[in-house]
Simulated scan of single mutants.
Amino acid sequence: MDAIDPRPLYARATEQTAAVIKAVTPEVLAGPTACAEFDVRTLLAHIVGGTLRIAVVGENGDGGGVRALAEGVPDDGWPAAFDEVRVRVLRAWESDERMAAPVRAPWGEVPGREALPGYVMELVAHTWDLSDALGHPVELDPVVGEFALASARQMLPEDREGSGLPFASARPAPEGADVYGRLAAWLGREPVSRA
């Protein structure tokens, strides 16, 4: 995975996230997601706030100080809010120097090329969470899914019980699951949608 430049995959991941966010309607904002602590609105705030955090990290800042952007975004404003941070995050990570230089990720100081795959995984996982909550309104990119799954398997142990890691322990993937079903299972997700 070290030989793969994660930037094009991250850009593709942001494109599919934008497409899923555009499918959100105000009447589903209070609905459940596979992320038990988030309803759709809170998940959107987490995605937008998390993407801003990744932009700040890419700009050589401390992303830990960035708060979720739940307040102030109107019900129909999530696509615009995500597009704004999406432009910023892609700009922050575009240089080869950023990929070589150390950044302050939640798991420590590492070169950008080692941090960005974790951010791809997080964005793709939460995009699946949102897509699942909406009944899978758009087809998700299997190439991005495979990269996210490989990153998750490399970074996260199968048993995460009591570890303090942000994802639950892996669960068995359903028979015949696609890459996103396998990713969701590896991250301990239980789908809310059966679509």
Results as ranks from 00 to 15, higher is better:
residue 84 E to I: 00
residue 108 G to E: 06
residue 80 A to Y: 04
residue 112 G to P: 02
residue 92 A to H: 02
residue 88 R to P: 00
residue 115 A to Y: 09
residue 82 F to K: 02
residue 115 A to G: 09
residue 95 S to L: 13
residue 102 P to D: 14
residue 115 A to N: 03
residue 112 G to K: 01
residue 115 A to F: 10
residue 106 P to C: 08
residue 95 S to H: 12
residue 99 M to V: 08
residue 116 L to D: 06
residue 94 E to H: 12
residue 92 A to Y: 04
residue 84 E to C: 00
residue 94 E to C: 14
residue 72 G to T: 12
residue 107 W to Q: 08
residue 114 E to M: 03
residue 81 A to R: 00
residue 79 P to A: 03
residue 71 E to I: 05
residue 97 E to N: 14
residue 94 E to P: 09
residue 77 G to I: 08
residue 99 M to D: 05
residue 89 V to I: 14
residue 74 P to A: 07
residue 85 V to T: 05
residue 113 R to C: 14
residue 100 A to R: 12
residue 79 P to E: 09
residue 72 G to W: 06
residue 91 R to N: 13
residue 86 R to I: 07
residue 107 W to M: 12
residue 101 A to R: 10
residue 70 A to P: 07
residue 71 E to S: 10
residue 75 D to S: 09
residue 93 W to Y: 02
residue 84 E to D: 12
residue 94 E to V: 15
residue 99 M to W: 04
residue 73 V to R: 00
residue 75 D to A: 14
residue 111 P to V: 12
residue 72 G to R: 03
residue 76 D to G: 02
residue 115 A to P: 05
residue 91 R to Q: 10
residue 76 D to I: 00
residue 78 W to V: 14
residue 101 A to N: 09
residue 87 V to W: 01
residue 78 W to Q: 08
residue 112 G to S: 04
residue 89 V to M: 11
residue 106 P to H: 03
residue 77 G to W: 04
residue 104 R to C: 11
residue 89 V to R: 13
residue 101 A to Y: 03
residue 79 P to K: 00
residue 115 A to K: 00
residue 100 A to D: 15
residue 86 R to Y: 01
residue 98 R to Q: 13
residue 84 E to K: 08
residue 103 V to N: 04
residue 115 A to C: 09
residue 105 A to C: 11
